[in-house]
Design a protein around this nucleic acid. Structure first.
Length: 143
DNA sequence: GCCAACGTTGGC
DNA sequence: GCCAACGTTGGC
C-alpha cells in the first residue's frame, strides 16, 4: 500500500468542503498534468493520502482515503484526464505546515519540497509516519 | 503582487 | 525533434 499527497487550493476546494462531501467519496477533478494523472492511475482503493492546502495555508490538514480507482474526469473535455474518488478520513489535529516540513532534514527529499508544482504525488512510508507524528494524527488503519 | 519553476505548445 | 515563447502554479 502506497501513501499519497493531494494538493488543493482552499479557495477552490478546502478540507471543510471535503469533509462536508461525506464518506462515499467524491471525484478529485481538475488534474491536468500527466505526471499527476499517472500517479492516480496507480492508486488502489483503500490507500491513504494527505490533504494539503496550497497558497495561503501551505499545510497538511487532513487524511483522505481512495474510494475508487482512476476513471474519466467528468469535468474534462477529453478522455485523457482521469481522477480517483476520495473521502475525508481524519483531521490532522496539529496541521503540519510546509515551513515545518522544510525544517526537518529527513523530509528534505519529499516531492512537496522538491517539486512544488506537482499536485498529486507519492509520499514515502517514513515521511508518512514522521508527518503523522508531527501532526498528532492517531493511527488510521489501512482499509 | 511578484517571480521562479515547470509544463505545454507550436514553429521550424 | 529541438527549443523559444507562453501560460500556470504556488511559495513568498
Amino acid at each position: 500500500m502506497a501513501f499519497w499527497l493531494f494538493k488543493a487550493d482552499p479557495e477552490d476546494w478546502s478540507w471543510e468542503d471535503q469533509k462536508k462531501a461525506g464518506t462515499a467519496g467524491t471525484e478529485w477533478t481538475g488534474v491536468r498534468n500527466y505526471q499527476a494523472r499517472n500517479f492516480m492511475r496507480t492508486m488502489v482503493v483503500g490507500e491513504l493520502g494527505f490533504f494539503y492546502h496550497s497558497n495561503s495555508d501551505r499545510a497538511i490538514v487532513g487524511l483522505v482515503r481512495v474510494m475508487a480507482r482512476a476513471h474519466r474526469d467528468s469535468t474534462a473535455d477529453n478522455d485523457a484526464w482521469e481522477c480517483v474518488d476520495l473521502c475525508a478520513v481524519a483531521d490532522v489535529p496539529k496541521p503540519v505546515t510546509l515551513a515545518m516540513i522544510r525544517e526537518v532534514p529527513d523530509l528534505a527529499a519529499m516531492v512537496l519540497v522538491q517539486n512544488s508544482r506537482l499536485s498529486v504525488q507519492p509520499v514515502r512510508d517514513a515521511e508518512w509516519t514522521k508527518i503523522c507524528t508531527m501532526g498528532h494524527v492517531k493511527p488510521v488503519p489501512h482499509a
